[in-house]
C-alpha cells in the first residue's frame, strides 16, 4: 500500500472567528501561518520582493481593521489568497505605470521552472525548440491553477473563487495542464536516455 497522509486540519479556520472577535493572538497565528505561502504565491506574479512584502503587510492590516465584518467568511485560507491576489495585481498595475516595465510583463504568472530550462539546454536544438514551444503553450492562468491545486492543495471551487473563473474552466486547465506536463517530461526522459546512450 502506498503511504497515506494523515489529514491535518486547516489551522486557520478554527482561529478565524476568534480573529473576527478581536483576538490578537489568533490574528498573529493566522498571519504567521499564511505569510510564507502567500509570499511564494506573490513571487509568481512579480520579481519585486519588497512590493510583495508591502502588499502582505497591507493585506493583514486590512484584515485586522475589517475583522468585525469578516465573520461571514466560511473558508478563510482561499479568501486570503484571493484578497492578496487582488491587492498585488492592483499594486503591480499602479507601480508599473510609473516604471519602465509594462503592466503585461508584471502580470505574468512567471518563472516556469528552472529545471525545465536547463533540461532544454541539454537537449538537441530541434527537440529543444519543440519543447520550448510546448512550455510556452501553457497559458499563465493554467500555470497558476496548477500551482494553487497541487502546491497549495486548494480545491477546484476554491481556485475558481481565487482566480475569478468558473469551476469547469479550472477543471479544464488542470486536466490539460497535467497532461501536457506529463507528455513533456516523458519526452525529456526519453531524449536524455538516448543522448547518454549514444
Amino acid at each position: 500500500m502506498r503511504p497515506k497522509l494523515i489529514l491535518q486540519e486547516d489551522p486557520v479556520s478554527p482561529l478565524w472567528q476568534l480573529l473576527c472577535s478581536g483576538d490578537k493572538d489568533a490574528f498573529g497565528q493566522i498571519t504567521e501561518n499564511c505569510y510564507k505561502p502567500l509570499y511564494h504565491y506573490g513571487t509568481k506574479f512579480t520579481d519585486d520582493r519588497e512590493l510583495i512584502k508591502d502588499c502582505l503587510q497591507d493585506l493583514f492590516l486590512d484584515i485586522w481593521e475589517k475583522r468585525a465584518h469578516l465573520s461571514g467568511v466560511a473558508n478563510p485560507r482561499p479568501y486570503l489568497f484571493q484578497a492578496f491576489r487582488n491587492n498585488l495585481l492592483r499594486r503591480t498595475r499602479r507601480v508599473s505605470r510609473f516604471s519602465e516595465i509594462g503592466a503585461e510583463d508584471e502580470l505574468e504568472f512567471s518563472s516556469f521552472s528552472y529545471e525545465a530550462e536547463w533540461i532544454h539546454r541539454e537537449t538537441e536544438a530541434g527537440l529543444e525548440q519543440k519543447l520550448q514551444l510546448v512550455m510556452k503553450q501553457l497559458p499563465k492562468r493554467q500555470r497558476e491553477a496548477l500551482y494553487l491545486r497541487y502546491y497549495e492543495n486548494l480545491t477546484y471551487e476554491e481556485i475558481a473563487d481565487v482566480m475569478g473563473l468558473r469551476r469547469q474552466a479550472v477543471a479544464n486547465y488542470l486536466q490539460y495542464g497535467i497532461q501536457k506536463l506529463r507528455d513533456y517530461w516523458q519526452q525529456v526522459v526519453i531524449s536524455l536516455v538516448l543522448l547518454l546512450a549514444s
Partner: peptide, 25 residues
C-alpha cells in the same frame, strides 16, 4: 511534473516570517 508546477521558490526562513509578523503586530 510537480517540480514544474512548483517552479522556483525563494527560501523564506521561519525566523524572517516571525520578524514580519512581529512588524505587522
Amino acid at each position: 511534473i510537480l517540480a514544474s508546477v512548483r517552479g522556483e521558490l525563494d527560501s523564506f526562513p521561519g525566523s524572517e516570517v516571525k520578524n514580519r509578523v512581529q512588524r505587522i503586530l
